[in-house]
Computed example of a mutant assay.
Amino acid sequence: MDGSTLRRRSLLAGGILLIASSGRGRAQAYPGRPVRIIVPYPPGGATDTIARLLAQELTRTLGQSFVVENRGGAASITGTQAVATAAADGYTLGIVDTAFLVNPGLFGDRLPYDALRDFAPVSLLVRAPLALVVASQAPWRTVAELVAHGKAKPEDIIFGSAGNGTAVHMAGEQFRQAAGFAYLHVPYRGGGPMFTDLLAGRVQMAFGTVPAVVEHVRAGRLRALAITGAERSALLHDVPSMAEAGFPQVDAALINALIGPAGMPEAVIARLAEATRTATLQGMSARLAELGFHPVGSTPEEARETFQAAIPRWARIVREGGIKPD
């Protein structure tokens, strides 16, 4: 091997080491200033709660302020678009929920971003199963009784949701398609007014997060018939899962994930993902359990795979249900 070849190889190896050390340097230097986390909803909801818990943990572990910014509106599209169009430097992040996965099928070409192309997934955060609940005045005490009534007299069942395309609406549609029954769907502008009518008996059936319904169920104001997915809830351990009720495909849940704009440096994504997994599975875990959320924590690749699988699945349910945005 001649001297010029050795010199070329030395230069190449030096370049590779320089690139690698530069990547590590960016990751170690990040974050060098406050980071904003955009929540595409008003303050006070489940996604906002998760975001604030995560911001506290990341502030503590990464040594810079992580500040939550609420940008509600347009079925979460306004805030999510703000993430897509932000500088891809790691200083603008977003927390998304199930609507992020449903909206591509619901809005199609009207969506101002591509949910897969325009974002960098960082980590899945939590998963929260939903409870199928009925008004206390309703006659049904099992899923089978509800389904049988819906097949015989669908006009008797009013299903309330927090709006078209929301996680609770999609749970109801997934259940309807799986069970082959019918109901009258009434979308509300938010979960608050829907639950008001459910408690008053003007709505007979709904889905809600377990923390949102548990006290009403325990007090006898609502009756829980099933929990979505394969497992029971620790907060409502006497209520069967949808799998136990005979509908394992009804697994709709509220999920939250941390994302950033596409093009973020890989070293920054890796640092954020590691800190987020630690926060979710350790620092936040006790509080999340109290709130009825299942900590997930994931790699960026696992988050992307979840998005890639869920978006077409929800699009099919939207299409087969003939669902249109409000």
Rank of each mutant, 00 (worst) to 15 (best):
Val186Cys: 06
Val102Leu: 12
Ala13His: 09
Val126Asn: 05
Met170Arg: 05
Leu291Lys: 08
Ala212Ser: 13
Ala267Asn: 08
Thr85Val: 13
Ile323Val: 14
Ala144Asn: 10
Gly90Arg: 00
Met242Trp: 03
Ala55Thr: 02
Gln282Ala: 15
Asn256Pro: 09
Ala88Cys: 06
Val203Gln: 01
Val250Asn: 06
Leu124Met: 14
Ala51His: 07
Leu130Ile: 06
Ile317His: 06
Arg223Gly: 03
Leu6Gly: 06
Ala120Ile: 02
Ala75Asn: 13
Arg221His: 12
Ala315Met: 07
Ala257Ser: 14
Gly260Cys: 06
Asp251Met: 12
Thr142Arg: 09
Ser22Cys: 15
Ile311Gln: 01
Ala226Tyr: 03
Leu235Val: 07
Glu145Asp: 10
Thr209Asn: 11
Asp238Tyr: 11
Thr209Lys: 08
Gly322Asp: 12
Ala224Arg: 05
Glu69Ser: 07
Ala178Asn: 00
Phe247Tyr: 15
Ala230Glu: 12
Leu6Pro: 03
Asp326Asn: 15
Leu146Pro: 04
Arg33Trp: 00
Leu235Gly: 01
Gly292Met: 06
Thr280Met: 15
Ala182Gly: 09
Leu222Arg: 00
Arg8Ile: 12
Arg24Thr: 13
Glu173Pro: 03
Gly44Met: 10
Ala162Val: 03
Ala289Ile: 07
Gln137Lys: 13
Ala148Ser: 11
Met194Glu: 12
Thr80His: 02
Pro240Asn: 01
Asp48Glu: 06
Thr59Glu: 05
Ala171Phe: 06
Leu184Glu: 08
Phe159Gln: 07
Leu236Cys: 02
Gly3Arg: 15
Thr209Ile: 11
Leu281Ser: 08
Gly73Leu: 09
Leu58Gly: 01
Gly3Cys: 13
Arg127Met: 09
Arg202Gln: 13
Met242Ser: 11
Ile269His: 00
Ala252Asn: 15
Leu291Asn: 01
His149Leu: 14
Asp238Ser: 14
Asp48Arg: 04
Ala120Asn: 03
Ala51Val: 07
Gly72Gln: 05
Val168Glu: 08
Ser285Pro: 07
Leu101Gln: 05
Thr59Ser: 15
Phe175Asn: 04
